[in-house]
Structures are given as C-alpha cells and as structure tokens.
Simulated scan of single mutants.
Amino acid sequence: MSDRTGTLDEALERLHTTGPERNGWLSNHAPMAVEALVRHGQAATVHRWLDHYADRLEESPPPTRTLTAADAAGALGDPARITDWTLFFGRELEARPWREVLAEWWPRLLPGIAAGATHPVIRTGHAVRTLLESGEAGTTAPRLAELAHALGYWAARHQPLPALAPLAAAPSAAAALDAVPLVPEQDGGIRERLAQLTAFPVWGTAPDPDTAQERLVELVTAATHRYATHGHGEPVMLVHAATAPNAVLRALPALPRELWAPSLAAAWAAAAAVTAAYGPAEAMACAPVSLAPEEVFARAAAHGDDHTIKFTDTALDVGGPLALAAAVRSIELNPPFL
C-alpha cells in the first residue's frame, strides 16, 4: 500500500494500545476499517473516524505469562491469553520474515477460521494485504505489529466448526450458498448458531492451487452478490460471508501454493457457516445502481459503519454492477455510524 500521508501507521500505532475486543466478545473493527479507508483515498477521514470510534475501544488485557513455541498448542483457543499470543507473534515477527511466520501458522489457525465470528481472519487478511502492497521497503513496524495483533487474536479465539456431513455436490459457489441449510434456531449469538450446524453442500475442493484461487474468487463474488438479495436477513453479520473468504483470498499470494487448496476449503466453510447462521428464508429484489466505484466507497466512508466500510471494500475488489449494488444495499441496511 502506498500511503504517503503516514496516516495508516499513525492509526495503527494509536490502535495497538487497545485490545481486539470489548465487552468480552465484540470485535474491534477499527484496524480493518482504517486500512480500507486509507486504501480507497479516505485517509483524511481516518483520525476523525477513530475519535468517534474511541468509546468502542478497550485497553489491551494484561498478559498472564510468556507464551513459547513449546506450549503454544495448549494455549490455542484460550481467549484469556489474547495478549500473550500477540506478544508471542510480535517476537516471532521480529526474529523471522513475516511470510515465514505466516506460512508456519496459517495451517494451524485455518481450522479455527470461525473464531471470533471470522473477525480474526478478516483482520489478518487486511494486515497481509498491506504488507504485500507495501513491499520490503514499506514494511514498517506498525504494519508488522498489526499482523501480530491479528494472528494473536485468531490464535486466542481459535474455534473449529462442528463435524459436518456432506450434502449433494453443488455446481457453483452461488448454487452451494443457495443450498446451505439454515440453522433451526436463529435467536442466539453466533456461537449458539454455529453449534447447530450439521451439514453443508459439497463444494470448495480443488485439484490444484490455480483452480483453488479461481474458485475462491468465485466464492467471494457469489457471497458479495448474494448480499444484494439476502443481506436483509441480518445486515451486519451477513457481510462476513463475503469478507471472510476475501480475507483468505488476499492472503494467498503470501502463502506457499500447497496451502491454497485447504485455504479454499476453509473459506467455503466460513462463508457457508455465516450463511447458515444468519441467512433469510426468502430473497428480496435489489435495485441496480449507476455509480462509479469511488463514489460508492465515498458513500460508505460518509456512512461510517465499520462493517459497511469493510464490505464495500470487498465489493470493490469484486467489481461490476451487482457488487456495487450490494455495497449500496449494505449502506441502506446498516445503521450509520457518523
């Protein structure tokens, strides 16, 4: 990422004094939102947006004890050790190249992609995109620290999905999402909803890395388009059906190619899980829009909602009229923040 204003690093430094959650479970979306704002030419709005977001931030929890590679497996999925994990990854990233650390830990963390309602993998995707676009010369301490915070959050909230039975194979990502059975009880939080999952359509396998990447693009596209007609079911949570697999897609170029196929499978599981947990029974028509991408993002930035900003960022990655219509739909459905 070329950010000549220095705003992104300033914002990240400001945010790294805070924890990844508030009220014991709700995610801190600010690092992801400010990365998207800066990337899409809205750097001038970032510090004002953070001022408004400040009451949603909490200090980082105190560390409990030093985490080492030898005892890391036993601490996986322990949210009480969020700060221990962040400090662990900070040390790892100081000692080794960030791609090496990511390649080692990605397959360990991937089975827990549902962690924290998929926010940790999304935060990781934003951090990796920034590092990839920065290049070696632009790899600053705040950007490496952001990857440590993202991976630490993922490790602490690591949450595998329940065992799932295979349903009939679907011919496309869109058809697979259409065929996902909705959970029977949709009154609880995401943990209660995910516990009800029993089966998904067969999709999300690939014979080679290139096919895995192509199908991941297809999945992100299908989930983004689906929001246009199904986002009303739960406008905030359903954005993650698109933003979680897009986070995985953003990370692929930094990963060994042998990890691309399992990354696709995990991304499909995440998108299907969110769809099952929050999808509505019926679709609604979505009006087309005739707006330029930069105008759509400017509307999302003015709207200010963190999920809307991140979803619009993904919709611009997808591109095309239906993705832009889905982004506008998210602006209409989600309550404004600013």
Rank of each mutant, 00 (worst) to 15 (best):
residue 230 H to E: 08
residue 48 R to I: 00
residue 134 S to Y: 09
residue 281 A to E: 15
residue 161 L to N: 10
residue 240 H to A: 03
residue 181 P to F: 08
residue 232 H to Q: 12
residue 74 G to Q: 05
residue 97 P to V: 07
residue 11 A to G: 12
residue 297 F to M: 09
residue 127 A to N: 06
residue 141 A to I: 04
residue 137 A to Y: 07
residue 297 F to P: 02
residue 223 A to Y: 00
residue 338 L to K: 12
residue 159 Q to I: 01
residue 205 T to A: 14
residue 105 W to C: 01
residue 197 L to S: 05
residue 52 H to Y: 05
residue 29 H to L: 00
residue 301 A to Y: 13
residue 162 P to K: 09
residue 314 T to N: 11
residue 101 V to S: 06
residue 36 A to V: 12
residue 291 L to Y: 09
residue 303 H to S: 09
residue 6 G to A: 03
residue 139 T to K: 01
residue 247 A to F: 04
residue 29 H to C: 00
residue 24 G to H: 08
residue 138 G to V: 11
residue 200 F to A: 02
residue 136 E to G: 06
residue 197 L to D: 05
residue 234 E to Q: 14
residue 324 L to H: 06
residue 60 S to G: 01
residue 307 H to A: 08
residue 210 D to L: 11
residue 283 A to T: 12
residue 337 F to K: 08
residue 245 P to G: 02
residue 58 E to Y: 10
residue 54 A to F: 09
residue 316 L to A: 11
residue 13 E to S: 13
residue 116 G to N: 03
residue 93 L to S: 01
residue 40 H to N: 11
residue 52 H to T: 00
residue 245 P to R: 00
residue 118 T to M: 03
residue 112 G to R: 14
residue 189 G to Y: 15
residue 123 R to S: 11
residue 129 R to T: 10
residue 250 R to T: 06
residue 302 A to V: 05
residue 324 L to D: 02
residue 185 E to L: 12
residue 158 H to R: 04
residue 184 P to D: 15
residue 52 H to G: 08
residue 157 R to Y: 12
residue 330 S to E: 06
residue 21 E to Q: 13
residue 261 A to I: 00
residue 209 P to S: 10
residue 172 S to N: 07
residue 79 P to E: 04
residue 280 P to C: 08
residue 332 E to G: 12
residue 7 T to Q: 13
residue 218 E to V: 02
residue 113 I to E: 04
residue 174 A to P: 03
residue 110 L to W: 04
residue 204 G to V: 06
residue 119 H to T: 09
residue 9 D to P: 04
residue 56 R to I: 00
residue 238 L to A: 01
residue 220 V to K: 07
residue 126 H to G: 06
residue 43 A to F: 08
residue 73 A to S: 09
residue 331 I to M: 12
residue 250 R to G: 02
residue 163 A to W: 08
residue 10 E to T: 15
residue 184 P to N: 13
residue 53 Y to G: 01
residue 315 A to D: 11
residue 232 H to Y: 08
residue 77 G to Y: 07
residue 238 L to H: 02
residue 337 F to Y: 15
residue 27 S to K: 00
residue 225 H to L: 10
residue 151 L to T: 09
residue 79 P to I: 10
residue 322 L to I: 06
residue 251 A to H: 04
residue 222 A to L: 10
residue 69 A to L: 13
residue 331 I to W: 12
residue 94 E to K: 00
residue 290 S to P: 00
residue 232 H to G: 04
residue 181 P to Q: 05
residue 338 L to W: 15
residue 72 A to P: 07
residue 96 R to T: 01
residue 4 R to S: 12
